[in-house]
Amino acid sequence: MTATAHPNPREDLIVCPKCDAAYALVRPGPGERAVCHRCHTVLITPRRKAGMQIIALSVAILVLIVAAAIFPFLSISVGGAKNTVSVLDAALAFSDGPMIVLSLTTAALIIFIPLTRVLLSLYVLVPIVLDKPPARNAAQAFRFAEALRPWSMAEIFAIGCAVALVKISDLADVGFGPAFWLFVCLVVLFVVQDNFLCRWSVWYALGKPAKS
């Protein structure tokens, strides 16, 4: 469904985060969507039991991120010499000297920022799904998690590595370790979680008065 524009200021308004168009708030039913008529940004996407599904996905992502950072990501064999490396090893390979800033930034973008977003999501969503008052500073935590979203690049890292490794496969024998396939699973779960999350619903739940 498409949200209906309203010309006069009202309390029950929703504003498009992309183009700032204001609409009279009409809540769609489960499975429906409220979409900005101007830029077609999805404004509200309610789903049945979405909260528990997002929590389950967040826990799965949390486990996968930790495992993907520890297990071997790839192995390279050249002239009888073979070496395996994990994601953390690769990210911190240049941690000595002037490249330390680049190494720490890489590690943050592919591991620590996605991990922080998942932990913040659990902190915000678990009390809401359990029908309890929001956690302390939950609104700020959710706002921070959303601000980190463009900088969470675990999936970009996995895709970029796959392309790069295909190109060097003629120079060496390259094998994908378990961490690579864990990152592939992370790509899928990140997309599913992002599609399941209705940000308006979260903000609405955080703004509701606590039950006595």
Rank of each mutant, 00 (worst) to 15 (best):
V63W: 02
A34Q: 02
P46N: 13
L148K: 04
A154W: 01
G79N: 08
A93Q: 13
P209A: 05
V166A: 12
V202K: 02
H40W: 11
D170R: 09
V192S: 02
I76Y: 00
C16A: 13
E146A: 13
V126H: 03
D131M: 10
L186R: 00
P98F: 06
G160V: 15
Q193S: 14
V124M: 05
L92V: 04
V184R: 01
F71S: 04
L13V: 10
V26L: 10
A90Q: 11
V188F: 14
S212G: 08
P133E: 09
S58N: 09
L182D: 02
A68L: 08
K82C: 09
I61C: 05
C198V: 04
S77A: 08
A205D: 11
C16Y: 14
A22C: 14
S169R: 13
G31W: 06
K211N: 05
A90R: 06
M99E: 01
I54K: 03
K82V: 13
G80A: 08
A108N: 06
S169N: 06
Q193D: 06
L182V: 07
V124K: 00
M52V: 13
Y123N: 03
L102I: 13
G79P: 05
I128P: 00
A162F: 14
L189R: 08
V63P: 01
A108P: 00
C161V: 15
A164M: 14
V87S: 03
N137H: 08
G175L: 12
R47P: 01
K167H: 04
T84W: 01
P72W: 05
D131R: 13
S169C: 05
G29W: 04
L109D: 04
V126W: 00
R199K: 10
S201E: 13
R38Q: 04
P28Y: 05
L120W: 01
G175W: 09
W203S: 03
S152K: 09
A108T: 09
R136W: 00
I65N: 00
I111Y: 01
F183M: 12
I168C: 05
L182N: 01
P114F: 02
V87Y: 00
A93E: 07
V78T: 09
A147G: 10
A205T: 07
I54N: 03
I14N: 00
P7Q: 09
P17G: 14
W200Y: 14
L182S: 12
A135V: 07
K211D: 08
P150C: 11
P127Y: 03
T84S: 14
V126P: 01
G175F: 12
V129Y: 06
L119T: 10
F73T: 00
V124C: 03
R33A: 12
R38S: 08
F196Q: 12
R136M: 11
E32T: 11
